[in-house]
Nucleic acid binder design. Structure first.
Lengths: 191, 191
DNA sequence: ATCTAAATATGATCTTTATCATATATAGAT
DNA sequence: ATCTATATATGATAAAGATCATATTTAGAT
């Protein structure tokens, strides 16, 4: 047996990490297979030992990102669900997030997804539903916040991050994010 | 002098219209210069008599779309600004819009824009500011709705349309749009 | 030390596509 | 009718990039 037992798994994880970082900041067509492999210090040829195609990589990277998102992080002890949700929203609606720190695929790939294949659309939709469900859980089902409210909330925060990413005027971006942080609290009935 | 006086202007307009329709639904990289020209029954070569490059076309198409958007339409007589705004929001948050009828570049190109050049970013930012300003004007500055509220409103409607476009479950899309229509009225203090 | 299957690297190939150089068509002016 | 500047079309070029075929490296087992 060649190489250590987990070697390939580790390579695969590195490829996915590089891929997601590049895809989410540049979009599918502005990232070459070469670029991804160079980013994780491998080469073109090795790629096809891990993935069937660039499309498959994109879909897998999307799944990878979703399971590594802050939303998927465990709620820290000592925080109530609502406090944790409050922190999550502040992180989501932050300059750091907009700058590309563990970016949310829902916002960063919003329009890039449209040109991908059906499987990828389904993956995206799944990630979206999961975000809504998680926020609903944290908000508390008997809190006066219902599923409708959550749908408008997620539209708002996804839209805010997507738009903010394109705007170079940092002050305006801060205003957008701050307005949405405030509005989020209104929707959730105060935290 | 060859051709009629306005011939070239008309061709240019046709190119821009085709370009915007294609770019907004497929994104920059999934639209070839050939495809645009064929869409308006011209050919590749003629393109460079009108635009210096594909990038320039994209930017011009964005400007073109903004000035042809429903938001730029004149307010119909017999409607108050708030009634007109209400109709605009319902149109924006509709299945028809999501399906691509006179689509809003802010939503349809949200992440595609990021990879474009600085000039294009500025154009996008300009369109964005204009949308906020128009909505603020229609809402009425002394109505209890302030600029902050508008920023969260536009984030929400842009996000809703951007996300909806990727989701194939029509029922879910209707829920998203409906939730946002409702939330929009809350933000605007009832219409 | 050597052998071997798995992992990775290297060197094509083939397609797509933006852009350019050149040719043709158009319709007003003479 | 013909001439001409402008608009449009056609064919060529060249670069980029996904994928494949083939070679090389790796490290556990013998």
């Amino acid at each position: 047996m060649p190489y250590s037992r987990e070697h390939k798994q580790q390579s695969r994880a590195r490829i996915l990490q590089s891929a997601y970082r590049l895809f989410s900041t540049k979009g599918f067509d502005n990232v070459t297979v070469d670029a991804v492999m160079q980013d994780c210090s491998l080469t073109r040829g090795a790629f096809y030992g891990h993935f069937r195609s660039k499309s498959e990589l994109y879909k897998e990277a999307l799944t990878f990102a979703a399971s590594n998102s802050k939303l998927a992080d465990r709620q820290p002890e000592g925080l109530s669900p609502r406090e944790w949700l409050s922190q999550l929203l502040d992180g989501y609606l932050s300059l750091e997030h907009v700058a590309g720190d563990r970016p949310c695929p829902l916002a960063f790939l919003a329009t890039d997804i449209v040109s991908r294949n059906k499987e990828t659309h389904e993956t995206y939709a799944h990630v979206y539903s999961r975000m809504n469900q998680l926020i609903l859980d944290y908000a508390g089902k008997n809190s006066g916040t219902n599923e409708q409210d959550i749908l408008s909330l997620t539209s708002m925060i996804i839209g805010a991050v997507a738009v903010s990413r394109t705007i170079e005027d940092k002050q305006l971006v801060q205003q957008i994010l701050s307005s949405c942080r405030q509005q989020a609290r209104v929707i959730l009935g105060g935290i």
